[in-house]
Amino acid sequence: MKRTLVLAAAAAALAGQAQARDYISIVGSSTVYPFATVVAEQFGKTTDFKTPTIESTGSGGGLKLFCAGIGVEHPDVANASRRIKKSEIEKCARNGVNDVVEVKIGYDGIVFANSRKAGPVRISREQIFLALAKEVPDPNGGETLVPNPYMKWSDVDASLPGTGIEVLGPPPTSGTRDAFVELALEGGCKKIGWIKAMRKTDKKRYKAICHTVREDGAYVEAGENDNLIVQKLDANPAAFGVFGYSFLDQNSDKLQGGVVDGVAPTFENIADQSYPVSRPLYFYVKKAHVGAIPGMTEYLAEFTSEKAWGPEGYLADKGMIPMPDAERKTFSGDVKSLSNLNLAAN
C-alpha cells in the first residue's frame, strides 16, 4: 500500500520535472561559497524570488556540472576561485554551453598565520619555498637539489624562530592549496636564479620543483575545514597555518597574519594588491539561462551592486576584498550587457 503511494509520488515527480525550475541553482568553489551565499540570502529576502540554492562542490567540480549542458537540470551559475580553463571552455562548448559571462567579484588573500601566543613573524616567499618544498637547492651551494634538509625555521634563515617547521594547510584537492602553491611557493622559487632559468629550458622539471610540497610531516594536510586549522593553531603556538583571509579576520583575537615580503595581510594591502599571496574570485553565468530561470538578471544585479561588492558593501564585511573602482565598473558593465567570456582578455 505504502509502496504504491510512493511509486505514485515518484511518477508525479517525474512528470513535474518537465516544468521549469523557479529558483537559481549555483554550484562551485568553497572559497566563493561564503560570499555567494550572503548575496543569495539578501536577494531571497529582499525580492519576491526564491532564494537560490548554492552547492559547495569546489571550483573544478562546479565547472564540470556547469558545463554539462543547457536546461533546467543543469546549474545556472558556477563559482570559481580560479579562472575557467581552456579545457573546461571546450567541454562547455561540446555540450552546447557556448555563451558564458565571466564575472570577477573580488580578491581573497591567503594568509600565513600563527597564534598570538607566539611572536609575530616576518617571512619572504623564498623562505616559505625553502621551508616547504620537497626539494630545495643544496644549502652548501651549487646548482643541485637535495631533499629538504631544514627541520627548524632558524635553519632556513637565522631571523626566523628556532621552532620546528610545522605548517597546517589544505590538501591538494583545495583551490586554496593550488593558489598558495602557485603564489607563495612558486613565487619564492622564482627568486632563485638558476631555477628560474630552468623554466625556459625544462618547464616540466621547473614546475615539479616549484609546486611539490614536502611530504615528511612538516606540512600537515589539515583538511578543507579552515576552522579546524584555526583551532589547532590556537592550541599549538609553534605551528603556522595557511587559510583564507576571512578566517583571520574573524579570529583576529587568536591569530596574527605573518608579514610576507614585508607586507602584512590587511584588508587594505590585499585590496591594493601589494600583498603578494592573493587571488581573484570569479563566477560564470550561462547566458542561455538568463531570462529562462526567474530572477537571474536581478541576482546578477544584486551581486554586482555597490552595496554588495563595493568597498563598504556587505561582502567586504564578510572578508571579501573588493576590486578597484575601475575594475568593478568594467565587470558590472559586462554583466549588464552580458558580454561573452574572452579568455584572451586580461
Binding site: A36, T37, G44, T51, T53, I54
Partner: peptide
C-alpha cells in the same frame, strides 16, 4: 546528489 548546499527556504 546536491543536498550539501546553502538552502534558506
Amino acid at each position: 546528489i546536491g543536498m550539501v548546499a546553502f538552502i534558506v527556504d
